[in-house]
């Protein structure tokens, strides 16, 4: 049974449809990344999943039961789901009181609460700040305490709204480790909203991709707007100057293009040309390497470490991206 089942969900603000989901299922214990450009409806979806806002239309089922959007019914549900916002606020109390807040309102006794708070703070590496005044923490520490505050309640679902968007590298790495640990334990369902595609790819095997409030069927990878045209029967989609990919299955004109990062091969380029650009980022994720090439728009590429070593490429090198037609999906544009 799915943990969340959303059917025919619509959210309309000022006549504009900001979310339109015919169906969305979230399975228990899995990690999902929630991706999409700004204004795609990600935060709106998180508000529904955290039971903060009722959808204007449609049905939400949690654990198989339809959700009644009444305060008395929602409170027990909210205690199973934790939302960590992009810019979390700390209550003007100590870190310990912040992390223990959810436990205190559940009536947990002080000794058990103390143990759980210590455990949660240990997880995010901030046990030494337990007695500090929470509003005085740095941005990264605040984000980590907010995660500890959510996890102390042992929620079944953890919703993270861009948790690393405004933190430094050290804090980002720690937050990613925490998410990875939770994912590996498989007890908590994770929905990680992020603009960082390599982070999403590394942490979450499942992807929810939103585009103008709608689910984009492409499950993972690069997404662009482009112009599709046909030359001698072959469809080509122009994404940016010098960035063109083979595409088919749509009428000529504006389209959305998805490119699977694993369907791209990179080779050293001698000079400028089609789909050529500098390699701007290389990041090791276990035995896989996540790369980013600047083709006028960033193109994310994933390859095995062994394969990457064989290319002899490094950051700053000019590379040509060879995009396999099977790695390209084309959808009608909006």
């Amino acid at each position: 049974m799915s943990l969340f089942e959303l059917r025919k969900i619509r959210m309309v603000y000022d006549g504009r449809v900001v979310l339109d989901l015919p169906e969305l299922k979230i399975e228990p214990g899995l990690a999902y990344s929630l991706q999409g450009p700004n204004g795609a409806g990600k935060s709106t979806l998180l508000d529904i999943l955290s039971f903060l806002n009722a959808p204007h239309e449609g049905e939400v089922r949690f654990d198989g039961a339809p959700v009644a959007w009444k305060e008395s019914y929602l409170r027990p549900l909210r205690r199973k789901v934790a939302l960590v916002e992009q810019h979390p606020v700390m209550f003007s109390r100590s870190v310990r009181e912040n992390v223990g807040y959810g436990l205190a309102i559940r009536g947990m006794d002080q000794a058990e609460r103390r143990r759980r708070v210590n455990e949660a703070l240990d997880l995010v590496g901030l046990a030494h700040l337990a007695e500090a005044y929470a509003p005085r923490l740095s941005g990264g520490e605040t984000q980590r305490v907010a995660i500890a505050r959510a996890l102390a309640n042992r929620p079944r679902v953890l919703l993270l709204d861009e948790p690393t968007a405004s933190v430094d590298t050290q804090n980002r790495v720690i937050i990613e480790q925490v998410v990875a640990e939770l994912r590996d334990q498989g007890e908590t369902t994770i929905v990680l909203c992020t603009h960082n595609r390599s982070q999403a790819w590394a942490l979450c095997p499942h992807v929810i991709f939103l585009e103008e409030g709608r689910l984009v069927p492409r499950s993972r990878g690069n997404s662009y707007a482009g112009i599709l045209s046909f030359e001698e029967g072959q469809g080509w989609c122009r994404i940016a100057e010098g960035f063109r990919v083979p595409a088919s299955g749509c009428e000529p004109g504006r389209v959305r293009i998805g490119i699977d990062p694993e369907g791209v091969r990179l080779e050293r380029a001698d000079g400028p040309g089609l789909n050529c650009g500098p390699l701007v980022k290389v990041r090791l994720e276990g035995d896989t390497v996540s790369l980013s090439v600047n083709l006028g728009r960033p193109l994310d590429v994933h390859m095995r470490l062994k394969e990457f070593r064989a290319t002899g490429l490094g950051v700053g090198d000019l590379v040509r991206a060879e995009i396999h037609p099977a790695a390209v999906d084309c959808y009608p544009g909006q």
Binding site: L52, R78, E85, F91, Y101, R149
Partner: peptide, 21 residues
């Protein structure tokens, strides 16, 4: 800030507990 209300709600607070926050 409305985030205090939202945070308390997501941590499982009742209306009265949110008001106290």
């Amino acid at each position: 800030d409305d985030r205090y209300r939202r945070t308390a709600l997501t941590l499982g607070a009742s209306r009265r507990q949110v008001a106290m926050v």
